[in-house]
C-alpha cells in the first residue's frame, strides 16, 4: 500500500509542476500588465512603465522564453513568487490570504460532505417516501441555484432574522468585526459568528451534490446480493445498513471528493466576494482585473495544490476503503 501511494504522490507532484508552469505561460500570454501602467492617472512616462515592468520581471520586450526561465528560477528554485503589480510581495499576500480561504472552505466542505453523505444514504434507504422526495427536491433546487444567488438569499435571510429579533446576532461582512478585542473567547466567538453564513453557503452546495451521488451509490448497494446475505445472517438493520451498506457505498464517493473540491473552489470565489472576505478568490478576481500576472499565478498554484492534494486524499481514502485496489496495485 505505501508504494502505491508514494507512486500516486510522485504522479501528483509532476502534474503540479506542469500546472504551475502552464499557468505562468498562459497568464503571461493572456494578460497585459503594460496596459495597467499606461492607464494610470497621472500618466507615467514610457521609461517609467518599462522600469516597473522590468522590476516585476514582466518586461514584454524580452522573449517569453527568457521571462519564463527567469521566473522559474526565482519561483520554483527559490520559492519567491515576485511582486504584485502594486509592488508588494506576492508571498506575503499569499500568506495572508491562504488562511482566510482555507478557513472558509474547510469547515464548509467537511460539514457539507458529511451531511451530504448521510443525507444521501438516508434518502436511499427511504427511497420514494416523502422524506426522500423532499430531500431530492431541495438538493436539485440548491444545485440549480448559482452560488452568488444562494449567498445573497442567505444574506437576506440573516438581515430579516436580525431585524425581527432586533439583534445583530448574525454577521455577514468580513471575517471579524472591526475593533473587537477582549479575551480569546470573545475573538473566537466573533469569528465564528462571521463564519456562519459563508460556511453555510459552501456547505449547502456540497451537501446538495454529495447527497445525490451518495444516494445513487447507496441504492446500488441496497439491491446487492451481499446486503441480502448480511440480512440472512441475522444481522440487525443498523449493522446491515452501516457496516455492509454505507461502508461499501462510500467507495465510489472517494472519486467525487477530489473533483468536487474544484467546484467548491470556484464557488468560493463568489462567496468571498459577496461576504467581503479577503481570500484567494477575491484576490484572483482583482488580479485578473489589474493584469497582475504574478498574483494570478500565485492563486493558480493555490488552486492546483488544493485540487491535487484533495485528489491525493481521495486516493488515500480509496485505498483505505477498498481492499481490492490495495492488493492489485
Amino acid at each position: 500500500m505505501p508504494s502505491y501511494l508514494v507512486k500516486r504522490l510522485g504522479y501528483h507532484a509532476v502534474l503540479l509542476l506542469a500546472a504551475v508552469c502552464l499557468s505562468y505561460l498562459l497568464a503571461s500570454l493572456a494578460l497585459d500588465p503594460r496596459s495597467y501602467y499606461e492607464g494610470r492617472q497621472p500618466p507615467l512616462s514610457p521609461a517609467a512603465v518599462d522600469h516597473h515592468l522590468t522590476a516585476l520581471g514582466l518586461d514584454d520586450h524580452q522573449p517569453l522564453r527568457e521571462r519564463f526561465l527567469h521566473w522559474a528560477d526565482r519561483a520554483l528554485l527559490h520559492g519567491d513568487l515576485g511582486r504584485t503589480i502594486d509592488g508588494t510581495s506576492v508571498d506575503a499576500e499569499f500568506g495572508r490570504r491562504i488562511g482566510v480561504s482555507l478557513r472558509l472552505l474547510l469547515a464548509g466542505t467537511v460539514l457539507g460532505t458529511v451531511a451530504g453523505v448521510l443525507a444521501g444514504a438516508w434518502t436511499a434507504v427511504r427511497q420514494y417516501r416523502f422524506s426522500d422526495r423532499a430531500v431530492t427536491v431541495i438538493s436539485f433546487a440548491l444545485l440549480s441555484t448559482p452560488v452568488f444567488l444562494l449567498a445573497i438569499l442567505l444574506k437576506t435571510g440573516a438581515i430579516w432574522f436580525n431585524q425581527t429579533t432586533g439583534t445583530d446576532l448574525i454577521q455577514f461582512t468580513g471575517e471579524k468585526s472591526p475593533g473587537v478585542d477582549g479575551g480569546f473567547w470573545t475573538v473566537l466567538g466573533d469569528r465564528a459568528v462571521h463564519l456562519l453564513l459563508p460556511t453555510l453557503s459552501v456547505a449547502l452546495f456540497a451537501l446538495a451534490g454529495y447527497s445525490r451521488y451518495q444516494r445513487s451509490s447507496m441504492l446500488d448497494v441496497l439491491g446487492s446480493d451481499y446486503l441480502r446475505t448480511a440480512r440472512a445472517k441475522g444481522l440487525g438493520r443498523r449493522a446491515v445498513l452501516l457496516r455492509h451498506g454505507l461502508r461499501t457505498a462510500l467507495i465510489p464517493m472517494s472519486t467525487y471528493f477530489s473533483y468536487g473540491f474544484l467546484a467548491l473552489f470556484t464557488g468560493a470565489t463568489f462567496t468571498e466576494t459577496i461576504f467581503g472576505w479577503h481570500g484567494m478568490g477575491e484576490w484572483f478576481v482583482n488580479s485578473i482585473g489589474k493584469n497582475d500576472v504574478n498574483s494570478v499565478v500565485a492563486v493558480n498554484i493555490f488552486a492546483a495544490v488544493t485540487v491535487l492534494f484533495s485528489g491525493f486524499l481521495a486516493d488515500l481514502l480509496h485505498a483505505a476503503l477498498d481492499p481490492r485496489i490495495r492488493k492489485t496495485s
Binding site: 446480493d225 440472512a232 457496516r243 455492509h244 461502508r247 467507495i251 477498498d322 481492499p323 481490492r324
Partner: peptide
C-alpha cells in the same frame, strides 16, 4: 446463495 462472489461484502 448461488453466486458466491456477489454474496460476500467485498470490503470485509
Amino acid at each position: 446463495f448461488q453466486d458466491p462472489l456477489s454474496a460476500f461484502t467485498p470490503v470485509h
